[in-house]
């Protein structure tokens, strides 16, 4: 029997995914304190790989992993062609537009300058509102951009809002919520349908009883 390969995102979602898998009786081979990137469970024929969050989709789409745990934010940003077969209920946060506290009107320029790690999501959002924007792609510390005058607003994921607050920013507009998803390669879905369905049932039964969110 073939292995089922599951790609897990390092970072924000890793611990919660691990707890969930543990509860489902699947994650016994994983040692969360190890720096190894591959874990194999020979008896259950499951293996796990740890990759960068934004790469989970790539691994799954190319079939190297059959399944993957990825944030909806990453999925939206990647133009992927995978199945999103389950919402895992954890890793909840929201996309929002934020700007300097108290400043609500931007009319200095003819276009709105938007700094973000998520150019595709931002582009789509503002295109729907027919707001012309200039995108400034950043790779981190996005909150800095309006403070130093690099942009008017930012588009980012907001979990608690603390980072915004301490930097004197506030949410101008909520965009939509995101959470962690179980994604699946389209061919694996066919060839491993029975095993994937069983795994889905196991995870569905856990819903609500694991990973209480903050």
């Amino acid at each position: 029997m073939d292995y089922i390969n599951i790609a897990l995102a390092k970072g924000r979602l890793a611990d919660k995914a691990y707890i969930m898998l543990k509860k489902a009786g699947l994650g016994d081979c994983i040692d969360p304190n190890s720096r190894k990137l591959i874990f194999k469970d020979d008896s259950k024929k499951i293996s796990f790989i740890y990759v960068k969050p934004s790469d989970v989709v790539t691994y799954v789409q190319n079939g190297v992993a059959d399944l993957g745990v990825a944030g909806k934010d990453v999925i939206l940003e990647s133009d992927s062609d995978v199945y999103e077969i389950l919402d895992l209920g954890f890793g909840k946060c929201k996309f929002a537009v934020a700007g300097l506290k108290g400043e609500k009107i931007y009319k200095k320029d003819e276009v709105l300058r938007v700094a973000t790690k998520y150019p595709k999501v931002s582009k789509r959002f503002f295109a729907e509102k027919e707001q012309r924007i200039k995108l400034i792609k950043l790779n981190g510390s996005v909150e800095l951009a309006p403070l130093v005058g690099l942009s008017d607003v930012i588009v980012d994921l907001v979990e608690t809002g603390n980072t915004l607050k301490v930097n004197g920013l506030e949410i101008i507009e909520d965009m939509f919520e995101v959470s962690a998803k179980l994604i699946c390669n389209r061919v694996s879905y066919r060839f491993k349908y029975d095993r994937i369905s069983k795994l889905l049932d196991k995870l569905k039964r856990l819903e609500g009883q694991c990973c209480e969110d903050n």
């Binding site: 199945y83 999103e84 077969i85 389950l86």
Partner: peptide, 9 residues
């Protein structure tokens, strides 16, 4: 949504 088998959404 159907294309992506995204039942939840």
């Amino acid at each position: 949504l159907i294309y992506r088998k995204n039942r939840y959404e």
